[in-house]
Computed example of a mutant assay.
Amino acid sequence: MATTTPLIWLITGSSVGLGAALATHVLKSGHKVIATARNIASASEANPEIASLGGQWMTLDVTSRNSGLVIQEALTVFGRIDVLVNNAGYSLLGAVEDISEEEARDQFDTNFFGPLRLIRSILPSFRAQRSGTIINVSSVAGIDGLPTCGLYAGSKFALEGLSESLAHEVSDFNIRVLVVEPGAFRTRFLQSCTFPERETTSDYLGNTVGNTLKYFEGLDGMQPGDPVKCCSTIFDIVTKSGVASGLEKEYLRLPIGIDALDRVDKKIRHMKETVEALRGITSNTNF
């Protein structure tokens, strides 16, 4: 059944990209939004429509150990939260060998521990009201890791594993977990990618690593996905309306974009081939 009562959404990383697009779409659809960003002055200036449509900005740095306090602040102001969208994140691109431990930890602190802190902070409220939706914005990289994306894919794989287990744990409380796995959408995501401080090891420059870095450089501004359509689809899935009005089952994963679907299909085929090829070897290992 489609959601008719306006929901209160808290969206992290609302200053750019899918976060800003989703906040705008949710507000235009008659729901309420708590939009968060590290710098709400610049974020609100860049996205004036969010405030003009009734959205409220709150400061949030997802890497802060105290980031969960924003949940309590939002609950004090609005009384409840219905949808938590863990959208804030970035990509560290480079050969695994060239990435420092500090850079790897920073990647996980934003993409994995940031969502984890907010999830743990909001669950008591969701359990008390016996409802709530947690949307973890992953990536098709959380299913299929490309070269140069080792730490980014690793952080998203971790987020997917967390989400899968979490969904089992909270289903008894009528809490839904949705993992969004976008392909390439035309946002500023690639412009905000970071690279290792260490220069790319020369051996990698002329092979898969170097070629993939060039591919991403050329993809910026040419991504096939429309972020507005992406966010409309996410909204419909959550509210069981629009293109999702006929869906009876609530799915854990939402691969979105033709390119994402193609990569997921390829991964499934590869895993099935692996299982079937090795079944006779690995199945006879019980006592």
Rank of each mutant, 00 (worst) to 15 (best):
T76I: 03
T239A: 08
M222E: 15
C193M: 03
Q107R: 05
V137N: 11
G210M: 04
S283A: 14
T3V: 15
Q56C: 13
L116R: 10
S125T: 14
T36Y: 03
I40W: 01
L151G: 07
N66K: 15
I40D: 12
S138A: 14
N284D: 10
P48V: 00
G19C: 04
I135L: 11
T187A: 03
N207P: 04
R269P: 03
V140S: 07
N286V: 14
I11D: 01
S138N: 12
T148W: 09
R127T: 07
A21W: 10
N286C: 11
K28Y: 00
I40P: 07
G242M: 05
G161I: 04
N136M: 06
E101V: 15
N136L: 09
A41Y: 02
G257M: 09
V180W: 01
S100E: 05
R253T: 09
S91P: 01
L146H: 12
L69G: 14
I143K: 15
L278E: 13
S202F: 06
C231W: 10
D236R: 06
V26N: 00
L53D: 03
H270C: 12
V16D: 12
G246V: 14
G150M: 07
G55R: 06
I134H: 07
L27Y: 07
S283N: 13
S125K: 02
G154Y: 01
I99E: 01
S52C: 07
E169Y: 00
T76S: 08
S100L: 07
I175H: 02
N66D: 15
K266Y: 10
K156M: 09
M222I: 05
L22I: 11
V275Y: 10
T24R: 13
I71N: 02
F113C: 08
E169Q: 01
R198K: 14
R186G: 04
E73R: 02
I135H: 04
T36N: 10
A167W: 10
K266C: 09
A128R: 15
M58G: 13
F108C: 07
E217T: 11
A35H: 02
D259M: 04
K240Y: 08
V26H: 05
A128L: 12
A2Y: 10
D109S: 11
S241K: 13
F173T: 05
K32E: 03
L84I: 11
Y204V: 00
N284C: 11
E73D: 14
S29R: 12
F185S: 00
A141V: 11
V137Y: 05
T194K: 10
R186Y: 02
S125V: 11
D236C: 09
L205W: 00
L190M: 03
D262G: 08
H270M: 15
G94L: 07
I8V: 15
D236P: 10
V180T: 03
A141C: 13
S64F: 09
F157G: 06
G183Y: 01
F108I: 10
R120Y: 08
W9V: 09
S155V: 03
R80Y: 07
L247E: 13
L93G: 03
R198E: 08
D61N: 15
N174Y: 02
Q191S: 10
G246C: 12
V85F: 01
L261T: 15
D226W: 08
T3C: 12
A104S: 11
K32V: 02
V179Y: 06
G55F: 09
L92S: 02
L278D: 12
A21D: 09
